[in-house]
Structures are given as structure tokens and as C-alpha cells.
């Protein structure tokens, strides 16, 4: 599998996309930091941006890469290589590329600006961790779409719809439900609705860092227990992890059965 990973990387590093992604974050990081000169403002801006942008890019890149590496896949399938190794290698190849683009693209300007000497380091780590988790989650979801749809146009369509749903529509429905049923206790509903959307979940991780003062104004006890304690962060991370593992597992299962 390491070989496949190596060649996936190799292949991705040849495409300009990977560099564009890296450069985008690099420029964004430098502009935010050095134009503004305000570390915490930069972190907040990035947090708002990342929970939207990372899912979008990961879904689109994921679908695109899966389709464009079809030839590579077919070539490898006829070789004495385990099928799981091929697909896992490709998954790790693309996620690894996107993740390092994010990590280096933002890491370099922040470290250059003096992140390690500042109090914002924990906020920054939260930012990066949720960014990386979202990369893995949405690439996994994108691969699920691509492996099930031979038609590329349709695959892209579903990918964009998935993003739109998770990033915007879901929260709209969420809000509507909360307002319609405002007479009822909604604590458990809100928490589960949050757990079922990885974008919301990473948003909560960020809220716990940035908006704890506001969140402590909540009256519900369930929320307080969840948000006020370490177990809240722990459960969020666990949920994020299952968002990574489950789509990857369904993708691997499907790819094992797929005919080429």
C-alpha cells in the first residue's frame, strides 16, 4: 500500500491543483496576518472560512481525483496488488496532499508570525485539527459518491449538492425545526442534530474555543454538561472520528465489490 500511496502522491504533486491549494492558504495566511497584524482576528476569520471551504474543496477534489485516476486504478488492478491497498492508497494520497496543503499553507505564515509565543496556539490547533478532520471526512464522502457513479457529471453534481446540503441547507432545516418546536425541550435534539453533520460538529469545536462566554448563557442542563466539560470536546472528537471511519469503510466495501 505504501507503494500505491507513493505513486498517488507522485501523481498529485504533478497536478497544479495541489500547489494551488497550498498557495491559496499560504497567501491567505500571510495576507490575514501581516496586513491585519492581529493574530486572534486572523484565527477567527480562518475558522469561519475553513469549516466551509475545506468541505467544498475536499468534496470536489475527491470526486475529481477518483475519476481522473481511473486509468491508474485499472492499470493497478491487473497487477498483483491487493485491492484494498489500491483504494486506501489513493484515499490517503489525496487526503495526505490536501491535509499537507492546509497544514503547511497555514502553518508557515502563522509560525513565521510567532504563533508559538502567543496564546492563540490552542485556537490554532483546534482550527487545524477540525480542518484536517473535515478533509478526511469529505474526501471519504466524495469517494463514496464517485465509486457509485460512473457518470462523472452526475458524480460532480452529487458532490456539490452534498456540500450545499451539509454547509447550508442542513442548518436552515435545523433552525426551522428549533423555531417550530420552540415550546419543547430541544437539548437532545440539538445535540444529535449537531453530531449528524460534521460541519456543525467542527463548528461546535470552534464555538467551544471562541464563544464559550455566550454558550454558558444556555439554560439547558444537557447543553451545559456537554459544552462546559472536557467530555463535550471528547464526544465531538469521537463523532468526528466516526465520520472519518464510517464513510471510508463503506467506500472500501463498495470498491471491493466493484467491477472494472
Amino acid at each position: 500500500m505504501l507503494k500505491i500511496l507513493k505513486y498517488s502522491f507522485y501523481d498529485l504533486l504533478r497536478s497544479r491543483w495541489a500547489y494551488a491549494y497550498f498557495l491559496f492558504y499560504l497567501i491567505l495566511g500571510f495576507v490575514l496576518l501581516f496586513l491585519n497584524g492581529d493574530l486572534s482576528k486572523a484565527v477567527i476569520t480562518l475558522m469561519n472560512l475553513i469549516i466551509i471551504l475545506v468541505p467544498l474543496i475536499s468534496t470536489i477534489f475527491g470526486v475529481m481525483y477518483f475519476y481522473s485516476s481511473r486509468e491508474f486504478t485499472e492499470l493497478l488492478l491487473a497487477q498483483p496488488v491487493r485491492r484494498d491497498a489500491i483504494f486506501l492508497g489513493q484515499y490517503l494520497g489525496i487526503t495526505g496532499t490536501l491535509a499537507s496543503g492546509l497544514l503547511l499553507g497555514l502553518g508557515i505564515p502563522f509560525v513565521a508570525y510567532g504563533l508559538f509565543q502567543s496564546n492563540e496556539i490552542y485556537d490554532f490547533i483546534t482550527l487545524i485539527v477540525s480542518g484536517l478532520a473535515l478533509t478526511f471526512i469529505f474526501t471519504g464522502l466524495a469517494f463514496n459518491i464517485a465509486v457509485r457513479n460512473e457518470n462523472r457529471i452526475r458524480g460532480f453534481g452529487y458532490a456539490v449538492l452534498l456540500w450545499l446540503f451539509m454547509a447550508v441547507v442542513y442548518d436552515g432545516l435545523f433552525l426551522l425545526t428549533l423555531i417550530i418546536f420552540e415550546e419543547y425541550p430541544l437539548d437532545h435534539f440539538s445535540l444529535s442534530a449537531t453530531v449528524f453533520n460534521p460541519i456543525d460538529l467542527s463548528r461546535i469545536l470552534i464555538l467551544l474555543k471562541l464563544d464559550i462566554s455566550a454558550l454558558l448563557g444556555y439554560t439547558g442542563a444537557v447543553f451545559k454538561n456537554f459544552l462546559g466539560t472536557k467530555s463535550g470536546i471528547f464526544i465531538s472528537c469521537l463523532a468526528l472520528l466516526s465520520w472519518i471511519v464510517i464513510p471510508l469503510w463503506t467506500f472500501m466495501r463498495k470498491s471491493r465489490k466493484k467491477d472494472f
Binding site: 501523481d11 481511473r70 486509468e71 491508474f72
Partner: peptide, 12 residues
Amino acid sequence: YLPQIANFPENL
């Protein structure tokens, strides 16, 4: 194995 339609990674 020689596949019928030879699809190779284009960047290589």
C-alpha cells in the same frame, strides 16, 4: 495482461 483499451495515467 494486455488490456483492450490501454488507459494510462496521463501525467506519467
